[in-house]
Every structure is written in structure tokens, then in C-alpha cells.
């Protein structure tokens, strides 16, 4: 098939460009102390001054948003195959709705964590200038982490369930005895999202804002 290229053009361009861009960023853009290569103290200061509400609500939006991206992606992967396969074998539609429901459940996981996090976001006021107390910052980071954990776990879970659901629909159309067997695989895939939810909830319950 003619000559085969080891890697494509964009890869080549970016592998040259990205070291250049990174060095420009590191050497030209200096923040904090002029003499230090990386001024950790300054960076710490920046992070300490980011409002805890920012972290909390970023966590909530990541939890809900990423979960719903995962769920929607899974549903269209499953749904389009299901619709195509159902043209010839309509009997599979109601049975395979369960694959769509599995994907939907992923969105609900995100929603649950989102609600838990949202109820824990309380109003706090800064101490000593623009800084917040240690407990408040801990709570904020915990909520952010909980949101990211849930979001990414559910994104991957939604994709996984979606791909299996699509295969389940196609194989059920060919041979109806396969459906239950593939459903077992799908349940295991669906459990992955729960792991993220459990850790997310534990992180969220261990932290609380110190509302006065």
C-alpha cells in the first residue's frame, strides 16, 4: 500500500512546537520573585486567595456536567445501534431499553453527588484579609475533588455502558439467548460509576464549611 508513515503530520508539528511553547511560557512568563525559577511561595499565595466557592461550584458542575456528558454519549451509542437493529427485529426494543436506563442511571449518580455538594455549600467569610480559614479551604478542596472524582468516573462509566449496550442490542437481534449474558457485563460496567460516587460522597461528608 505504498509508503507507510510512522506518524502523521499534526503529531510531527506538535512534537516540535510544544517544547518551544512550554519553554516560552516558563522562561518568559515569570510570576513572583524575579530570581526564582518557580516561586512556590507566590503560587501558594495565589491558590490560598482563590475563593472556596470557586472550588465548590467547580466541583458541582464537574460532577453533574461530566456525568451527563458520559450518560448522553452512552445513550446515543446504544440508541443508534438499537434503532438500526430494531428495524428488522422489533422485539428487542423493550428489552434493550434497559441499556438506555443503565446509561441514564449514570447521569443520576452525578445528580446525586451534585445535590449533596450543593447542600453543603454554605456562606463563609474570610479571615485575615482575603484568606479563608484552614477548615473552609479543606472543605472547598474536598468538594472540588469529590466533584472531579464523580464526574470522570461517570464519564468513563457512561461510555463503557454505552458501547456494551450497543453490542447487546446488535447481538440480541441475532440471538436472543445472548441478551442476559451481555447484561451481566453491562451491570459490571455500570458498577464502575458507583465507585466514583461512593468516594465522592465520602469525601464530601468528611468536610464541612465552618459557618458562623
Amino acid at each position: 500500500m505504498g509508503e507507510t508513515r510512522a506518524f502523521s503530520m499534526p503529531v510531527l508539528i506538535w512534537s516540535i512546537l510544544s517544547p518551544i511553547l512550554i519553554s516560552i511560557f516558563v522562561f518568559m512568563v515569570r510570576v513572583g520573585d524575579e530570581d526564582k525559577f518557580i516561586d512556590w511561595h507566590h503560587l501558594h499565595n495565589i491558590f490560598r486567595h482563590i475563593s472556596p466557592y470557586y472550588w465548590t461550584y467547580m466541583g458541582i458542575s464537574a460532577a453533574v456536567g461530566l456525568s451527563i456528558v458520559g450518560a448522553a454519549w452512552g445513550i446515543f451509542i446504544t440508541g443508534s445501534s438499537l434503532v438500526g437493529a430494531a428495524v428488522r427485529t422489533p422485539r428487542i426494543t423493550s428489552k434493550n431499553l434497559i441499556s438506555v436506563i443503565f446509561c441514564e442511571a449514570v447521569a443520576i449518580y452525578g445528580l446525586i453527588v451534585g445535590i449533596i455538594l450543593a447542600t453543603k455549600a454554605e456562606s463563609v467569610s474570610p479571615v485575615e484579609g482575603a484568606r479563608f480559614s484552614k477548615q473552609n479551604m479543606h472543605a472547598a478542596y474536598a468538594f472540588f475533588g469529590a466533584g472531579l472524582t464523580t464526574g470522570f468516573a461517570n464519564l468513563a462509566c457512561g461510555l463503557c455502558v454505552g458501547v456494551i449496550g450497543s453490542s447487546a442490542a446488535l447481538s440480541d437481534a441475532q440471538n436472543s439467548t445472548l441478551f442476559v449474558k451481555i447484561l451481566v457485563i453491562e451491570i459490571f460496567g455500570s458498577a464502575l460509576g458507583l465507585f466514583g460516587v461512593i468516594i465522592g460522597i465520602i469525601m464530601a461528608t468528611n468536610a464541612a464549611f465552618d459557618a458562623e
Partner: peptide, 20 residues
């Protein structure tokens, strides 16, 4: 697996139906 069904998932279901 992630992107195929955006455009061609329906037709793949159809062609597998024809194959039956």
C-alpha cells in the same frame, strides 16, 4: 467505539439485520 455511532450506528444495525 466512541465515535462510529455518531454517523453510522443506525446503518450498522440495519446491515446486520439484513445479514440475519
Amino acid at each position: 467505539a466512541l465515535t462510529y455511532n455518531i454517523k453510522d450506528g443506525y446503518l450498522e444495525g440495519i446491515v446486520r439485520g439484513h445479514k440475519t
